[in-house]
Write a protein that binds this DNA or RNA. Sequence first.
DNA 1: CTATTTGTTTATCC
DNA 2: AGGATAAACAAATA
Length: 273
Amino acid sequence: MPELAEVEYYLRQWSPGLGKQVEEVLIHPKARIYRNTSAVGIRKQLTGETLLAGHRHGKQWLFEFSGGNWLGGHLGMTGKLHAKPASDFQPGKHDHLVLQTAKRALVFTDSRMFGKVSLDVLDEPGRFPDWWEELPPEVLDSRFTPKRLAGFMKRHQKPPIKTLLLDQRMFPGIGNWMADEICWRVQIHPATPVGNLSDDQLSELWKQLRTLSRQALRVIGTNWDTPPNSWLFNHRWKDGGNCPRKECKKAGLVRINLRGRTTAFCPSCQSSA
DNA sequence: CTATTTGTTTATCC
DNA sequence: AGGATAAACAAATA
């Protein structure tokens, strides 16, 4: 579920814990989310430390604690972060990691467990973990240039454009609904092989990637408001949903499966397959 | 019981 | 080497 802006939203849910000491760490050691990281190690390292800051990169997040401790993570398909009143908090069935502060329980919950957490312990204060520094530039980074985009597209000519937009190596943070929204805004059929796109379409794609990322962070990233009806977003999952573009005169939206992902588009204004 | 899910990783083939 | 592709992961919901 969570894409760029949703991850931003969840990251902020732990804000009440900023500057607060972790008094107790509750873990569900059998939970898959720990992967190669020791759940017990997380408990030992974070107990007594102070939450200093939260960071996001694409769909990944990273919380900085005192003592050179960094808690990284990914929400997968169903992961969520939220804060609950600390008084007699009891972890629910899918609450895999809980950081107890004096007033708040900071919770990582994830039913499907495609999410994950990791821990880095660094000597040098203030220095980010290497893996974080090595992440590719985000869409809104100044290093995300049209040239960089064109170079990537040249190396991947066959896949449908919708599918390629989900590639986190080039488009950190873009997920299923954003990819559909972008194809719709650029008016290209989502199944179009990347190699068939014109230079004009590529430059429009670059623009819309950035515009949508900015808008999504603003609308969803802070309060999770509902996007305006002028976006594809509010129409794409509705049975009998219609294209919100005026010129399309309420053409019926269509859903197809593209490489295993449900994809919504307007057959009237996105017909250049 | 079946089909579906806003995500990544891994294996395999080319 | 590195791109293309499908399957696997797991649990809730309709």
